[in-house]
C-alpha cells in the first residue's frame, strides 16, 4: 500500500499531458485528463505488479516525463491553471457527473473496505484470504484516478494529489481506529476545501509585511490542509 500511494501520486501528475492536449485542441480539458488518467492507471497498475527497483525507477520516470510532456503541450496561457488549478463555474451536466462520480467513490470504499483493510495490512495475507489483490489494486487506482479527475480543475495536476494525501496524513496523525480515521480525514478534506474556497474568493491577495501573497484556489486549499496537518502534530490521538 505504501507503493500504492507512490503510484497514486504519480497517477495525479499524469493528468497534465491530457489537460494540455485537450486545451491545445480546444476540447473539454476534463475529457483529456480522463483519457490520460485512464491510460496512466493501466500503465502504473502493470508496472507496480512487479516489485522491483526497476519498477520504482520506471514510476519515477513516468512521473517526470508526464510533467515535462504536459508542460510542453499545454498552451503557456493555461499552464499555471493546469498545474495549480483555479475556480471554474460548473455546468449542470458536470455537476451531475461529479455527484455520480462521488457516489461511485463512496460506494467503492464501502463495498470493498474489508478487502482494502486486509490488503493494506498485508497483501500476502489478503491473497491467502482469497482476495484478488491485483484486481483490487486496479480498482483502487481507477477510483483514485476518478478522485483526481474530480479535483483536477480546481486544484491543478500538481496539487490535486496533495488533497488526497494530506487529509489522510491528518487522519493517521489523530486517530487510532479505522472509523475515526475515515471520519477525521473526510472532515479535514472538506474543511480545507471550504476554507480555501472562502479565502481565495474573498482574500485572493494577502499582504504580510512586504510580501504579497497570491492565494489562488488550489494553493489556498493545500495551504489550509497543510496548516491543519501541522496543527494535528500537536494533538493527541483519539
Amino acid at each position: 500500500m505504501k507503493r500504492m500511494s507512490l503510484a497514486g501520486d504519480v497517477v495525479s501528475h499524469i493528468a497534465l499531458p491530457g489537460l494540455g492536449l485537450a486545451m491545445l485542441f480546444g476540447i473539454n480539458p476534463l475529457v483529456g485528463a480522463a483519457a490520460a488518467l485512464f491510460l496512466g492507471t493501466i500503465l502504473i497498475w502493470h508496472l507496480q505488479k512487479s516489485a522491483t527497483l526497476t519498477t520504482d525507477v520506471a514510476i519515477g520516470v513516468i512521473f517526470t516525463a508526464a510533467l515535462a510532456i504536459g508542460t510542453v503541450l499545454t498552451p503557456s496561457d493555461d499552464l499555471i491553471e493546469a498545474l495549480f488549478g483555479g475556480f471554474q463555474s460548473l455546468s449542470a451536466i458536470w455537476f451531475v457527473a461529479g455527484v455520480a462520480a462521488v457516489s461511485v467513490i463512496v460506494a467503492f470504499v464501502l463495498a470493498f473496505r474489508h478487502q482494502l483493510i486486509l490488503s493494506l495490512f498485508s497483501p500476502e495475507l489478503a491473497a491467502a484470504t482469497s482476495v484478488n489483490v491485483s484486481r483490487l489494486n486496479l480498482y483502487f487506482l481507477l477510483v483514485f484516478s476518478l478522485t483526481v479527475l474530480l479535483g483536477v480543475r480546481f486544484l491543478g495536476a500538481l496539487l490535486v494529489g496533495a488533497l488526497i494525501i494530506v487529509p489522510a496524513a491528518i487522519g493517521r496523525q489523530l486517530t487510532h481506529t479505522l472509523t475515526a480515521f475515515l471520519i477525521t480525514s473526510s472532515v479535514a478534506s472538506v474543511l480545507s476545501v471550504l476554507l480555501g474556497l472562502i479565502i481565495s474568493r474573498f482574500y485572493p491577495h494577502f499582504t504580510v509585511g512586504q510580501v504579497r501573497l497570491n492565494l489562488a484556489l488550489g494553493p489556498a486549499i493545500i495551504a489550509i490542509a497543510t496548516i491543519l496537518f501541522l496543527l494535528s502534530l500537536l494533538r493527541k490521538k483519539i
Binding site: H114, I117, L118, F121, S122, R172, T177, L178
Partner: peptide, 27 residues
Amino acid sequence: YVPQKIDADTHLPLTFTDLFRAKCTTL
C-alpha cells in the same frame, strides 16, 4: 495461514477487531 513477519506500518489505524471483521466479511 500464519505468515512469518508482517511489515505493517506502525501508524496504521488498524486493530485486530478491524482485521478479524474484515476476514469474516471477506470469507
